[in-house]
Design a protein around this nucleic acid. Sequence first.
DNA 1: CGAGGGTTTGAAGTGCATCAAATAGTGTGG
DNA 2: CCACACTATTTGATGCACTTCAAACCCTCG
Lengths: 242, 242
Amino acid sequence: MKTDHQLQVAIKDSILFRDSSDAFISKIAAKGSMTHYKKGKILFVHEDQAKRFFLVKNGWVKLFRETLDGEQAVVDMVTSGQTFGEAALFQDNIYTYSAEAIEASDIISIPLSLLQFEIDNNPKFVKTLLFYNASIRQLKDKEIEHRSLQNASQRIGCFMLRLVDQEKLGKTNIHLPYDKMFVAAKLGMKPETFSRALKRLKKDTKIRVKGATIEIDNLQQLSDYACRACSFEFPCADLKKD
Amino acid sequence: MKTDHQLQVAIKDSILFRDSSDAFISKIAAKGSMTHYKKGKILFVHEDQAKRFFLVKNGWVKLFRETLDGEQAVVDMVTSGQTFGEAALFQDNIYTYSAEAIEASDIISIPLSLLQFEIDNNPKFVKTLLFYNASIRQLKDKEIEHRSLQNASQRIGCFMLRLVDQEKLGKTNIHLPYDKMFVAAKLGMKPETFSRALKRLKKDTKIRVKGATIEIDNLQQLSDYACRACSFEFPCADLKKD
DNA sequence: CGAGGGTTTGAAGTGCATCAAATAGTGTGG
DNA sequence: CCACACTATTTGATGCACTTCAAACCCTCG
């Protein structure tokens, strides 16, 4: 009972299902199950047959692929409220990437068949899904742009800006969500580059770094620095929060 | 009449509508109109109010955004059978990029309201749209990966491979679809870099370049060279053709 | 406390960008 | 059909950003 309630709350809090009816959410909760994964646990690997998709309750999961010569490409990092693996539905039920919990995480898995059923029978949900995909597509475009136009320090600054409430322009503290080496991977740079670029960012924008905590006195200054090389205007939060 | 028939054929040939019923296609054709654009013509600019979306009959269109400090980011290059501007439907009817015909092009425009109507009333079409978006999302992931793992020569090789029929592994000729400076922009590099990287590619894979024509003796050699740094396996055509 | 990962630093290399100039190519009006 | 003007492409020289390799440092967790 308790667990079931937890599931419902987590589902209701997710980006994909927050507008769904309570009945629908109960239905998902009934078929879903929550698992705790330790840091480093591989949830599935690229080209596995996909039967379920996942919703992060808390923690972080890295989605990645590997090249022939052993390099790793980070497709995404997902956290609370985000889903992964659902795209397999449109890819012959094959996962197109591997997934690894990069810290202890609670993750809900839900049968893809349920999603398929809703796509076939729930027009309202399908529209939600269309919007969801459209936002992700836009995010990907932004990321491609960032890779070619922003330098390493600007990418880090931009990453931080997306972690704060962009509305209040004053003083803020943020907490890097996971190990710096994963942030580096997410931003497409090497840990050494990350370290040096962060140092440069500190010098140029007066932010203070204490371990994983970042103190920002002046959000405006940070955005001036990072967003100069971006075509999106500053308050530019990733996914609409409300 | 003649024009109307042309429209129908073009729509039927498009990726998004090829599985649609004849009745649906007629309906689109009735509301659509075809325009010829000269090279350099701007179709719309970023943040314009979006009333219509576009389908390329022939030619090439560059979709791009601009940063504060004047750099240009190429979002995509689209050609025959591809659409653009339809994503505005999920972005408050605002175009999120600008569009420029980079060569003489015939382009069909269709009211977004028609698309909206179908989304609301045509479940089969909605599913097509879901699949369409999922493929695009996958392509974007691939492109992000390419930007961080492939060097300039490999990106050019990869670009060429996506222009050929990947099934026949023998000798092939291809034709660069548009000016080299646009290919460079599409691949996120400067024209000078493109030129030098192409030279290196020629040396390393024995392809021959005669103006815009590329002669490839050994597709396998080219894919060995380019796809080594990619996590997708070789026959890896962008959008399913059938 | 010690082992092992995570992070920083240094030195050196590589790849792409930049700036500048030469060359090739294309379309136009005469 | 030619010559000019303009644009695209190539080439050279140089600089900068990121990477690589190697080593030190630091942190934390058993």
